[in-house]
Design a protein around this nucleic acid. Sequence first.
DNA 1: GTCTTGACTTAGACAAAGTCCAATGTAGGA
DNA 2: TCCTACATTGGACTTTGTCTAAGTCAAGAC
Lengths: 138, 138
Amino acid sequence: MSDLLERLRGRGWRLTAQRRVVAEVLNGDHVHYTADEVHALATSRLPEISRATVYNTLGELVSLGEVIEVSTDGRAKRYDPNAHHDHHHLVCSRCGTIRDVHPAGNPLSDLPEQERFGFAVTAVEVTYRGVCPSCASA
Amino acid sequence: MSDLLERLRGRGWRLTAQRRVVAEVLNGDHVHYTADEVHALATSRLPEISRATVYNTLGELVSLGEVIEVSTDGRAKRYDPNAHHDHHHLVCSRCGTIRDVHPAGNPLSDLPEQERFGFAVTAVEVTYRGVCPSCASA
DNA sequence: GTCTTGACTTAGACAAAGTCCAATGTAGGA
DNA sequence: TCCTACATTGGACTTTGTCTAAGTCAAGAC
Ligand SMILES: [Mn+2]
Ligand SMILES: [Mn+2]
Ligand SMILES: [Zn+2]
Ligand SMILES: [Zn+2]
């Protein structure tokens, strides 16, 4: 976490209270907040932070490769601090809970040459869907 | 195509000019239009069709399982008439072109039990990303 | 062929998610 | 401490999608 702030300072980031708070909110495992959720959490620590700054900061963190954008539902994008370990997502169809998962094998190698249409394929995103234990028992 | 209209009539669909035009637009291979694109194409055949009707009709086609929604970019949803053959998507990172692809193997079985967090996993979506031949040569 | 009626369509208001800008504030080097 | 380039802010604006009240019409009944 302060690793992150160190890395960012090393890259010439001017360290403001707003950026620090956004970086602090994006901490933990299985964290996938929308921009509005980040803004709400940031506001509870720094009441005057603006929506525009949250969007700006999230965009910068994505550009710097410190956070990844996840779109699992065609609604708001979610921001994921787990950018340094390749992973995919498991989403509950009822409540929307998202877990980080690590499938066996490399999904990229499952796409045969004749199915690549001449593309240079470089990345793959996998979204598993199902019902979480909590929703199943309710 | 007229198969589709037949099936829909059989399900009690009232067959209107608007619905017919939307169904006609959603025809072909590798078709993944946004609602606005469908509206523009429909308007060229039936100038007075409204945005609301396009959204309504697309939603109905999705509910009936005749069209699937695809979200590959966190922006507008895309509507895909290829609903009767399981497939995944290959997206050009530059121009956004989308191709239907069929990976080898079943991606669902690649998710180990201990990575399922107790979820009942029922579906998986895979999005491959890369650069298409046309963008690569430009 | 005409009538009837509930389903369908429409325009426009509204909402959610995100972008952009001009004015103001400030982190950090000199 | 001062300077200034960079950062923040509120609000206007855009894109994508939803909702509703009023008008229209497809298709079955006669
Ligand atoms: Mn994640
Ligand atoms: Mn498709
Ligand atoms: Zn759940
Ligand atoms: Zn391309």
